[in-house]
Amino acid sequence: MFGPKGTGDTSGYGGLVAKVVTPGSSERPYGGYFDEVTDNLERAYPEFSDAIERVVIDRGELTLHVKAEKLVDVAFVLRDSLKFEMCMGVNGVHYPEQTGRELHAVYPLLSMTKNQRIRLEVSVSDSNPHIPSLVEVWAGNNWHERETFDMFGIIFDGHPGLTRILMPDDWKGHPQRKDYALGGIPVEYKGATTPPPSDRRSYK
């Protein structure tokens, strides 16, 4: 477990690897307004148990993991019955080690009427990265979905014009994915060379 390996590096980096525990599903009662939100969603949306894969309460935030094919239905119910009038966009996260569900799309929702926040999370595989678009539910998601497509390659089906938004139109690859190299060159200054950030020592 301890001790340098490979390079014989003795600079203090021991190669100690800590086990990572990601927050798992939560059990009722969730606390706060989270019980109310899930209860109301179950009442308003009979297919709740089928569409919601798991409910996670972590750091005082509620995350509903939704199946991609049910996302639009759930979004309409949340908007119309539960008064989540605003979607604060979508952002992607790439987890290459989660085989079969590498790409996650995260939607923070806001209810101004009830002053509540929840989060929807959808995960799809790298080989079939299709998620239905929410532009018809919240028009403001238009650019956010384009950005997520641009950065992660998630294809939002039904989007009115899914093109790149930040990168040039003819760009190859999706920069925010973990397998996309950061780039950079070594920089020499007064005889010492600093490697590019991706080649520097990283502590796990």
Partner: peptide
């Protein structure tokens, strides 16, 4: 040099 570790999870 190393920084501190932050427990896994996500926050908004």
């Amino acid at each position: 040099t190393e920084g501190f570790r932050v427990p896994a999870g996500q926050a908004y």
